[in-house]
């Protein structure tokens, strides 16, 4: 079960190693998923390429966009002064991932590439219209996060590619995000269901201009609930309409039954949490407008 260990000092050398070893190599970021899977015998890479000496992958840049390096930790997201206002949903998603020990090392890039349908930060990134950039021997390519996610544990990343950054547009005024999670206990819990939303209201704070709703742990990948988004856009987001969005979102998902919850219960959770997460966005927009 052992492997050869590599510590490339740059992104290009990391990619070169991956190109050389192909699917026999795995990139190591925080290790909170990879090392567990190796310990359990689920993965047996011949080469482990640690990224911790690669400079520049752990930065959060805010200019025309927000760009997160793949090695930005959950802890860094939680603490970033950039995300305490309109992007608050990102903080809420990051702070329910494991305990402090896991969040201190676990990374955004790892959370995405691990492609768990129950990932907590991914729905928030989907609600923010995030795109991911992968670097391979032939250069860079950028694709929407939604397309990047293919199934449980599966993404469009090729073995020789490194996910380098995640990027999303800046939120304008009258916008907010929020995240809610249902688990069996309050801490250290895999999501039974998690939901993220983003809402932008018009200048009069009356009608919904744009809505995004993303659902976790209810389908093979994190999922946008488009019908629920459409029912909100252009309308006055009254409580009744938020409930309708919840019902549409519940219809859009295909949850499984497992040890954590039945499929039926997961649908009920979606129906309940979606109006709640939307209401939270509205509260936040109105607070900011005051």
């Amino acid at each position: 079960m052992s492997f050869e260990y590599h510590e490339p000092p740059s992104v290009s050398e990391a990619v070169a190693l991956a190109a050389r070893f192909g699917s026999e190599a795995r990139f190591l970021a925080g290790g909170t998923d990879l090392i567990v899977q190796i310990n359990r015998g689920k993965l047996a890479p011949r080469h482990v390429v640690s990224l911790h000496r690669v400079p520049g992958l752990d930065t959060i840049a805010v200019d025309g966009h927000v760009t997160l390096g793949a090695l930005v930790t959950h802890r860094a997201l939680e603490r970033s002064p950039h995300f305490q206002g309109r992007y608050r949903g990102l903080v809420e998603g990051a702070q329910v991932v494991g305990g402090h020990q896991v969040r201190n090392v676990g990374t955004v890039g790892g959370n995405i590439v691990n492609a768990s349908p129950a990932a907590d930060v991914v729905p928030v990134l989907l609600a923010l219209d995030a795109a991911v950039t992968c670097l391979g021997p032939e250069g860079e390519r950028t694709l929407p996060l939604e397309e990047f996610l293919v199934g449980p544990g599966q993404t469009q990343r090729r073995p020789e590619e490194l996910l380098t950054t995640v990027r999303f547009p800046l939120l304008g005024p009258n916008s907010a995000t929020a995240f809610l999670k249902a688990g069996r206990r309050k801490a250290m819990e895999i999501s039974v269901v998690c939901v993220a939303a983003r809402m932008t209201l018009d200048a009069g704070l009356e009608r919904c201009r744009e809505a995004r709703i993303a659902l976790g742990a209810v389908a093979p990948t994190t999922l946008r609930a488009r019908a629920a988004e459409h029912v909100l856009e252009g309308e006055v987001p009254r409580a009744e309409l938020l409930r309708r969005a919840g019902a549409l979102a519940a219809r859009a998902c295909q949850p499984i039954s497992d040890v954590r919850a039945s499929s039926q219960f997961r649908r009920l959770l979606v129906e309940t949490l979606v109006p709640r997460v939307l209401a939270r966005c509205l509260e936040r927009i109105r607070e900011e407008g005051r």
Binding site: Y5, L28, V105
Partner: peptide, 12 residues
């Protein structure tokens, strides 16, 4: 920082 030493390679 607090970390889990079971998930951290000594080499890192």
């Amino acid at each position: 920082m607090a970390v889990n030493s079971c998930l951290l390679l000594a080499a890192q």
